[in-house]
Design a binder for these strands. Structure first.
Lengths: 128, 128
DNA sequence: CCCCAAATACTAAGAGGTTAGTACAAACCC
DNA sequence: GGGTTTGTACTAACCTCTTAGTATTTGGGG
């Protein structure tokens, strides 16, 4: 039951903003500008945030002083799942399983992380 | 040592073409048009293929009749890795491990697939 | 050898994203 | 209360992607 439309990829700039919104929770535009790792014009961040609002990723939740306060409307995990799913659709024949198997098979994951992953699978299996 | 530039995401249309190039190997534009699941103008496919060539994903490898033959210049796995990495960068703090753990933790992967994944990890661990 | 179907080259419109400037409004400070 | 600051609204330029049309070339069949 996702709020996301189909094929909703967060672009690089949008993701930068969303990560701050998810981290902080209730943010004004200047909160975002302050926390961004690179320097962007206030109005630039406004535009990106407006786009995120149009896409349904954030919503206004009142004001702080004169400034609008924004909060996430889509959770981080939902966005992660949606984006991963889109990648699976484009390059893995739509199969999330293929995506995961490919990531694990390649050297992208270290040996100790592999052990952690196995651990997680086992505890997942146990809990079902 | 990837041939890919930074932040190289294959767009939806580009991925559609690349999947055919990877599947078939040596293709002309009309080969691609024929195999595409949706109907696109010949010139549309030409444009997308030209972009893919500019991006370094395909290259011309001679001619068949009057038509240029294209072949992949970047392998499927390289593109998959690069795209996954970009998603990790945008939404998972750059960590491929987080990406994988998140996919496994969510319901995106079925129970039997989980078993298969565990199997793969074990054989990977054994071979190291 | 000449014509035509097929391919290419060139051009373009429209959508969306990134970046930012300008103009206006409101609040705050002295 | 009047100017400075801070926020918003509007606009815009530029880029890339998607889609496709037009004009031109070329190679193969009769």
């Amino acid at each position: 039951m996702s709020q996301l439309k189909e094929s909703t990829m967060l672009t690089a700039a949008e993701a930068e903003v969303m990560n701050i919104v998810w981290d902080v929770g209730d943010v004004t535009i200047s909160d975002i500008v302050e926390r961004l790792p690179r320097s962007l014009a206030y109005t630039t961040v406004m535009t990106t945030t407006r786009i995120l609002e149009e896409k349904g990723y954030v919503k206004k939740s009142g004001k702080r002083g004169r400034a609008f306060v924004y909060e996430p409307r889509v959770g981080r995990d939902a966005a992660r799942g949606s984006m991963s799913h889109e990648v699976a659709r484009r390059l893995f024949g739509g199969s999330m399983k293929s995506l995961v198997l490919n990531l694990v098979h390649d050297d992208a994951i270290g040996a100790d992380d592999l052990a952690e992953l196995k651990q997680m699978i086992e505890s997942l299996e146990a809990s079902k």
